[in-house]
Every structure is written in structure tokens, then in C-alpha cells.
Design a protein around this nucleic acid. Structure first.
Lengths: 373, 373
DNA sequence: GTTAGCAATCTAATGTGGCGACTGCTAGCA
DNA sequence: TGCTAGCAGTCGCCACATTAGATTGCTAAC
């Protein structure tokens, strides 16, 4: 059944009003603000029809209408106005991204923070899985008498590394050769392939078997959703500002969802690869025990290379036009950032040329740390 | 003014009862459960005195007494009974720590999780700052044409590393020599010292100046509280289970505190170096805007080496005997764990001997990853 | 110093009435 | 056929009063 233009206008009016005021919308409200040309009685008739059609609901007989999830879906797909960011909002975004950002990790956090600040919602950001990265080079370096570092370089510019205890008295050359050997074995494989290929070591190379297994183990651990720590939430407390979570029960359900942030990863990954993704979910629809909520995410890229997703999570009644415009604008901002040293993600390292005769340019370097026994 | 033994018993009774039921305690309650030998009228007299002394308070005239922070302090210092863990609690702890734990990071998370699960409170765990670690060795490895990895080994077994972009056409030997040079400069310094020493490069070594600066920058970033990511919270949602945060205002204040978890680090660090630390704080006492709460932490060590702190954060009315016994037991458990590869903290790497002719023993290795351009 | 008894105090729960906000319906109009 | 004005009916919400129950402080006696 088609929806007349006036019905659409009314749905838009109900959603818009409800988003802003979080109160059931009456026919008089709609007439006053959105449709002065027709009478409230006419609107009442339309409202009754739209309720039958499943777009609206009534908390009780003598109250106004509230939108159903269906209405929100129609709204975001078709009716929603495109909104420009205000000066102050642009200012906030600039404040976050104008300072020197050189680490992916930093982008992740800044993005989450700024989204949360502007939208006043809980935000989520995470770094894309790198299973598909192809291995280019593996180096093994002896760093103490009893420890070696394994460095795996991939075409995503990804380095995976692990320190492993070693027996004493192994020469540096042994590790150099071992590195060349495993490089030879894995070169060109994606991480996923490497893990599943069940490569076998020829007898002649048995001496590297332990190293080989160790490297494989590293890759395996990385090919999973091991990367829990790479999802960042900001502003969990803001959930409580939303009237729908004034009820402690619901607030708790929501906070528990946020607490188990790892569990959000599959949900986020499920979303299409479109630049923008809006998920509106009723109770338990996505996952058992998952409260009614909406998740809006966008894919982010730097210089065209996809680095991850970021967005907001909140009540279904959220200011979609604002959220979408914020995510959109931030996406563009990020894409124009100077490309961060992608080592940064793990090493927290910063791009920096180390040249033999470099000028007085700034030197930035960050790092992760690592304790070894 | 001394406190009679009966007064102490009454304080203990009030705190104990209030901890369990979160309701003002009446004289009759105390008589029934804790002091059947004396009448409620006598207890009422004592209660009035204790209120004058500042240990108890009355929400309103016709209600029972609640403990003040002072009463809690006396309770935890002197009155509190030592509690044994129940079977099921021990079981939970064992479940968490019996599986193969080899990463510091993993310990951190497991500890936080198990504490939160047993105490039903929000837990916090973080890894100790390593400013005092002494530098032993610095290695620089060229890993791609345009990237080098800087590895800093300290006596804490700490390795700090950073990837830095480099100019093309620099030989591997150059980096080896540069590594030897900076090792020579920094060897034996603590990280804090290295950062503040303002070492100067002699003209003859000018060629390493950029590398030198980069290393210094790495150390500097590490000497601060840069290590935000190393604090872990578990069970934030559990805050809402506590009746004192049934009030949305208070719940929000608390959640905002947890949201800004970096700000908790100084608070945790301020605590003494005693194995157990109980901090009971009234509104704004520690920090502006910080809600009334209690923080109980314990220092954790593996094989006698301090690795960090963990504990709970919650309302002042918390089950201290239980919390203390849990923290205590977990401390012992952790100390007996097979020593994890301390690289693990950053590399997520696992202890593993890589021997030329190793047996069929398990091989475990974990890693962090690192993207490079 | 302790206790029984009792009035006083205050909260929390329950009930009541009225107000106001909407709707749905009906009847009339273009 | 579609729109509108008018109005009765429904329901939530708020303020207020009332009641029941819990607990204390005080007094007087032991």
C-alpha cells in the first residue's frame, strides 16, 4: 500500500517532534508546527490510519502518538532532512582534529570522543580486522640472551610482533636465517591463508620448526577477533541522559551491553560495507538480551584506505539527521588527515623521517612498551 | 576518647547490618541479631552517644542509624571480621586462573573480571608505571625500506618499541651502529633519568642525532601517564545494582567517573604501597566532582615482582570483608602463576622457549600487531 | 547503669478528586 | 468524497489528605 505524501509528512512530523521532545505527539502539535493547512481532525484521521499501518503507536488511549521502529526506518531512509553542522559543532570537530594526530589509536579515540561530545550519545569506534593483510616479511631479532622478537610485516603495513623466550646460546645469525626461512614460507599469504594452509616443514628445515610454530601461533591469534582492545567506547554515562533509560532496568540492560563491548564487534561487522549504516533494533532482535537500541556507524578511511568504523549507540529515538551529518563530516575530516604511521596502531608510534641529515623538523615518536623478563 | 568494647560491637553491628541490607539500623535490630544480652533502650543510649561522636548518623528523626565514613574506617581497620571464601567463590577464581594465562594483559583482564564477578562491584585493574626501569639495551632494526623499529630493553624486562619512518637507502648496518650508539648513551639510566638528563651528542656522533632524538621522544612519552590503555574496568553496569545509585543523578556522577578512567590512575597511585589499600571518600574529597565512593585495591605481584594494582570501586557501603578476602586470595593466586612473559604486556606475547631441538612441548605465542605504511 | 513504657516524630503507602491533554466519533459542510 | 468543528469520553498526572508503621528520645522506676 502506498503512502500518500501527506502521510509521509505526518510520519516525518511525528518522528521529528518525538526526537526533539521525547513526548507523544498530538494531532494539535502536528497541525501547529508542521501542517497548518489542515485541521487537527484531519490529522487525527490520518494518525489512526498510520497506526493501523504499523507506523505509529499510542502509549494509552488519550495520549499522542509515538513512532514505531518502522516509522524510524522510513524516516532515515526517505524522509529525514539533511542537516548542516552548526558553527559550534564544526569548531568542536576542528578542535579535536587540528592538533597533531599521528597515531591510528589517537584517531580512534579522538573520533569516539568528538562523536560523543557533539551527539551527546555513547559513541563506539573500532579498527577493522586485518585478516586479509598479506605477509611481506618476517624478521626475528635477538634482543636479550633469552628473548627474541618476531616481527611480521604485511602489505597493510601491518606489523605483528611477539617476543618469545629462547634458549641461551643461540646466535643472532640463527635468527636471521630463521627469519628468512619463515619469510620464504609465508610470503604472499594472507594471514587467514597462512593460518589455514597447514604448511609443512621439509625435513631439511626441521631446525626451524619451533620458530615456525611460534610464528604460526602468532598469526593464528591474530586472525581471530583477538583484537578486543581495539574497540573504544566513549561517553557510556551519556546513556543515562536519555529519557528512555531513566528506568533503571533499561539503563542497566544498556550498560551491560556496553560493558561487554567485545560482543558489539560482530554486530558492527555485520553491517554492510556501505559508508553509512543505520541499525534499528527492537528488544532481543539482534542478540538475546540485547535491549532496544539503534546503532549508526560509518566507515572511515585515511587516503582511501579503510581503517575502521565509528558511530553512536543509543535509543531508537535519536537525532538521526544530526548523527548522520556528524559522522559524515568526520569521515571527510579523517580522510584528509595526513596519513598516520600505521604502525601507530600497535606501537603508538608516530610517523617520522629519520634521515641522516634531517633539518630541524619536529621529531615525534611514540611507542608501546613491552616488559620482558 | 576511648571507645568501650560495647560501643565497638554496636558500630560493627550497624556497619555489618547496613552493608548487608542497606537500610538504617534500629536499636531493636541490633539487639535481636547482635546484642541479645542488653535491652534496646540501652542500645538506643549508646547509639545517641555514637552519633555525637561522629560515627553514626540518622537520615531523619524517626529512622534507624547509618554508619558515617568514620565508622567504616574504624570497621575496616579494627572491627571487620576476616572472612573465608566460599566454595563457589573459590571455584570461580580457579575457573579464571586455571586456564593457561601467559600474558600480563590477560592477567589484568582476568583479574578485573573475576573480582567484579565475585564482589558484584565494578572492578579496576592497572599495570604499574615503569618509570624506574633501567635501560639495558637499544636495538634498531630496519624492517621495510621506509620503516625501522626501535626496541628498548630494560631491567624490568621492559621493551619499549616504536616504528619510525626512515629515509630510503639507509643500510641495515647504519641502524645497528646507531643502536649501539644510543645504547652506550642511555645504558644504566632509568627512563625518568634518561628523559631529564638532557644528554648531548658529541659532534663526532652528529650522524645519529635524529635517531637519538627519536629514542628520547619514545622514552619521554613513556615516562608519563601515557599508559592510559593499561587501566581496565570491568562491570561498570554493576554500579547500578547498588541501591545508593538508584538515584539517577548519583548513578550518572559515578559512571562519569568511570568513563574518565584515566583520571583514576593518580587516585590509585596515591594509595600507599601497602599490599591492601582502602580509600573511603566523601563527595569531592579526592577530586572535584568525584562522588562519594570507596576504592579498595591490592598490589599484585608475580614471583615477587610487582605488576600492578587491582581492586574494586563502589559505594562506601560495600562488603569489605568479602572484598578484602577476595583481593587477598587473588593476590596469592596470581603470585603463584607461572611467570608470564613480561613482554606480554605490549606484545601480548607468551613465554616460550624456542630451542634448536625442543621437544613436543606446547608452543604458545601471542603478539600485538602493528600497522605500518 | 539499665530497662520498660510511652508520646512524639517522621516516612511511606494508599486513596481521592480534579485538572488537563488527547482522541474518536458524529454531524454538517464544500 | 474529503474535510472540519464540536464534544463526550478516557486516561494519566498531580496535589492533598489520611493512615499505618517504624523508631526514637525521654522519663521514671529498678
Amino acid at each position: 500500500m502506498g503512502i500518500s505524501s501527506r502521510k509521509e509528512k505526518i510520519i516525518e512530523a511525528v518522528v521529528d517532534s518525538y526526537i526533539n521532545r521525547c513526548e507523544p505527539v498530538s494531532s494539535a502539535d502536528i497541525q501547529k508546527t508542521y501542517l497548518p493547512a489542515v485541521s487537527s481532525a484531519t490529522i487525527r484521521n490520518e494518525l489512526a490510519t498510520l497506526e493501523d499501518m504499523g507506523y505509529l503507536a499510542q502509549p494509552h488511549t488519550s495520549s499522542g502518538r509515538v513512532p514505531t521502529a518502522e516509522a524510524y526506518r522510513l524516516y532515515v531512509e526517505k524522509l529525514m532532512p539533511r542537516r548542516k553542522l552548526s558553527r559550534s559543532e564544526l569548531k568542536i570537530i576542528k578542535r579535536y582534529f587540528n592538533r597533531k594526530i599521528t597515531e591510528l589509536d589517537d584517531i580512534l579515540k579522538s573520533t569516539a570522543k568528538v562523536i560523543s561530545e557533539i551527539t551527546n550519545l555513547t559513541s563506539v569506534a573500532y579498527v577493522q580486522n586485518v585478516e586479509k593483510a598479506r605477509i611481506e616479511n618476517i624478521k626475528i631479532v635477538k634482543i636479550t640472551d633469552s628473548t627474541a622478537l618476531i616481527i611480521i610485516v604485511t602489505d597493510h603495513g601491518v606489523i605483528k610482533d611477539a617476543a618469545a623466550n629462547i634458549a641461551q646460546n643461540i646466535s643472532e645469525e640463527y635468527f636471521t636465517r630463521a627469519g628468512e626461512f619463515v619469510t620464504e614460507v609465508f610470503k604472499g599469504c594472507s594471514i587467514a591463508q597462512a593460518v589455514h594452509s597447514k604448511k609443512i616443514i621439509r625435513d631439511t628445515r626441521k631446525e626451524y620448526e619451533q620458530i615456525f610454530k611460534t610464528v604460526l601461533k602468532i598469526l593464528k591469534n591474530h586472525s581471530h577477533e583477538e583484537m578486543v582492545s581495539d574497540i573504544v567506547l566513549e561517553g557510556s554515562a551519556k546513556i543515562l541522559e536519555q529519557p528512555e533509560y531513566a528506568n533503571l532496568q533499561k539503563a542497566k540492560a544498556m550498560l551491560e551491553l556496553l560493558d561487554a563491548k567485545e560482543d558489539l564487534i560482530p554486530v558492527l561487522q555485520n553491517s554492510d560495507d556501505m559508508s553509512l549504516n543505520i541499525l534499528i533494533s527492537k528488544d532481543n532482535e539482534i542478540k538475546e538480551g540485547m535491549p532496544e537500541c539503534a546503532i549508526v556507524t560509518a566507515n572511515y578511511a585515511v587516503n582511501g584506505i579503510n581503517i575502521g568504523k565509528a558511530g553512536v549507540i543509543g535509543p531508537i529515538r535519536m537525532d538521526y539527521p544530526k548523527v548522520v551529518s556528524v559522522l559524515d563530516y568526520i569521515g571527510k575530516t579523517i580522510n584528509l588527515l595526513p596519513e598516520p604511521d600505521r604502525n601507530a596502531k600497535m606501537y603508538n608510534a608516530e610517523s617520522q623521517s629519520v634521515e641522516e641529515n634531517a633539518g630541524e623538523g619536529e621529531i615525534h615518536a611514540d611507542e608501546t612498551e613491552n616488559e620482558t623478563q
